[in-house]
Design a protein around this nucleic acid. Structure first.
Lengths: 209, 209, 209, 209
DNA sequence: AATGAATGAGATTTCATTCAT
DNA sequence: AATGAATGAAATCTCATTCAT
């Protein structure tokens, strides 16, 4: 059927893996996508650059991801899983944590997605009308935070909890944005201030000093 | 005919209209641009749609704004002026304000740019490496906030003041983002929570109850 | 979607086609480009017409040549190679040639690039500040001529040789221009006169009668 | 009829001539056009830049020159007149000149159009199918040179004279091109060589030593 | 006469996506 | 599966020219 006639294997190194496993390829593509999107934003990231950075061909990229949206969704999903795990860890010890530590733990969820969180932010910033997945992620994150808050402070009204969760999610995003902050001088003081603000707020909400 | 890419209009900034007609046109173009950018984000807004919405020809748009960047800069500048005025009003009565009122006043600066603030956010979110103007705006805003804080709480250390200002600016943006919140249910509780968080934080910084 | 002017393809040079199909296409595109540029001049030649004449889609043209400059460079390079070969043939038998034959051989280098030399001239005439490649070509040609002259007349001072080479290169271009001569009556006498002038000059330089 | 309502004369300096004489304006426009065309070539020169450089408005430019071609024609005509005068001066003393001096005199005709000759070259290089005037200029120049040659060497056959004239005209252009030569190092030797070549050639044609 | 705004066709370029091999 | 060529709509931008005031 498919002959190799038109692509003779001259200079094909014996050791070069000719057919990377699909999984590796997908991983490489997603990593490349994350990098490009983080650098340029979702809109400006091009499928061609993503493929190139992954050492793949554009056709290969489209084999695994039928379009750009799907790629974004896959990334969101992957990060979503990581984030979910982080939330679950916090949830497990929620009731044991001091306000201070809980605030920090939450803030660190996004923060510790080191390289990738920039991608997350870029993805979440992109015009969202197009994608359902992005909103789902937001909603899920809010739910997780709300659940954790409820565990720690069961007396809070459900309505309030959700509002607080929304605020906290934004604060998490802000922390990330603060540390990325385009260009030069990385502001070391501001993140500390943001952490303090969050602690104060949580403490107040929990009715603790 | 022949276009000349070696002598692009990249550097020229927005042209000042001389006549009544031009002034009207520029106003219409900027309003249209604000609308389209708010709706679609900066990257996805097209010059053609902007011109069309302003009832202008594409050439007319380019007469006054030599490129998309220049249009963005003009918008930033315009909103920058509005914001500056708002800050100056706050500055004038800074020492007389309660912490509560100061926090609200600051949060309202961006918030009250009603229609336009969505544009602002879109513009500020756009990949910033490209534009100097956008960063200038950020810096100026931080300076204004820092000055106001110093007036109200002269005992704060200059370093700290700047960090606090950075945090507050982000909070202002967040408030706006919360109220826009793509799509459906406008979250009424969350903004109130955010305001409360800001007040608590400021009060703590000021050493007041 | 969104175009990104901050990351233009300006620097990338022509893409090497990998497959049979691409090679044919590139050949067709270059031929079409040569034709259109020869007819209209570089500035007035449009990418659309070039693509159409090659039976290609505009996107196909841009796949291989990221911009108009790159196309020009590729053409210059191709003709440069042909010219280089011609010079090398002359070089090989330089010391054996009579003044008369050497003059003719040099004049024929450009002259015999039959169809294409018109393109060359158009390309070389285009404002040169834009392109490095074009100047490189000029410089290389001068070096070749100078080397040939030195082989044949080793007693000439290196400075002088280069100046003579510059004059000869212009004469070569002039011969071509004379035979193209826009529009009507092809002047048969003038080229002969130009050849005679060149011979006289070379003979004088070589100190031969 | 025409009131100044919309353009009040605030800050209009009393000494600033408000309405330049048409002649001055035309002169300024032509000078500006010459400059821009010399720098960028005819195709790439834009009417807007020409007007701007003349301190005029685009509408003003079009009042005097109905289109770009007309502007080119006017320039050609103007330089044509200058060239004509130069030729006539040479003609007047043609029979008294040595071959050496005649060659130099002819070469200097274009050469001494100091600033403007670059414009001439640009204009003459532009695709000519569009313009009749440009060819006329060429033809006229050839006629002048031919007449001068005939005066000095009446024994030359008319056919030959015209061919020689064509060659000489190209040599004149070449001399100019050599001295402009884009970029840095002005080749001082090459022009001298070109002059020598021309003298040798003329001397030979005239049957003189 | 002068000014500057308006026009709009057309130029270059980009890029997501599809297709043939 | 993989490769890389093809597609073509759409985006940005240019500019000669016309027009209203």
């Amino acid at each position: 059927m498919s002959s190799n006639k038109s692509r003779p294997n001259r200079q094909r190194s014996a050791l070069e893996p000719q057919r990377r496993r699909g999984k590796d390829r997908v991983a490489a593509l997603m990593e490349a996508a994350a990098g490009v999107i983080a650098e340029r934003g979702f809109e400006s990231a091009t499928m061609a650059e993503i493929a190139a950075r992954a050492g793949a061909q554009i056709g290969s990229l489209y084999r695994f991801f039928p379009n750009k949206e799907a790629l974004a969704d896959a990334l969101i999903y992957r990060y979503g899983e990581i984030v979910r795990e982080a939330f679950e860890k916090i949830e497990a010890r929620a009731s044991a944590l001091s306000v201070h530590d809980l605030a920090d733990a939450l803030l660190n969820v996004l923060f510790e997605l080191h390289g990738e969180s920039q991608t997350m932010v870029a993805l979440l910033e992109a015009r969202s009308e197009w994608s359902v997945k992005r909103n789902e992620f937001r909603r899920a994150a809010v739910q997780y935070i709300a659940r954790i808050l409820t565990l720690r402070a069961p007396h809070l009204r459900p309505d309030t909890v959700e509002d607080v969760a929304v605020v906290l999610l934004h604060t998490m995003k802000t922390l990330k944005a603060l540390t990325i902050q385009q260009g030069v001088a990385i502001n070391t003081g501001a993140p500390a201030e943001l952490r303090e603000m969050t602690r104060l707020y949580l403490a107040s909400k929990f009715g603790e000093k």
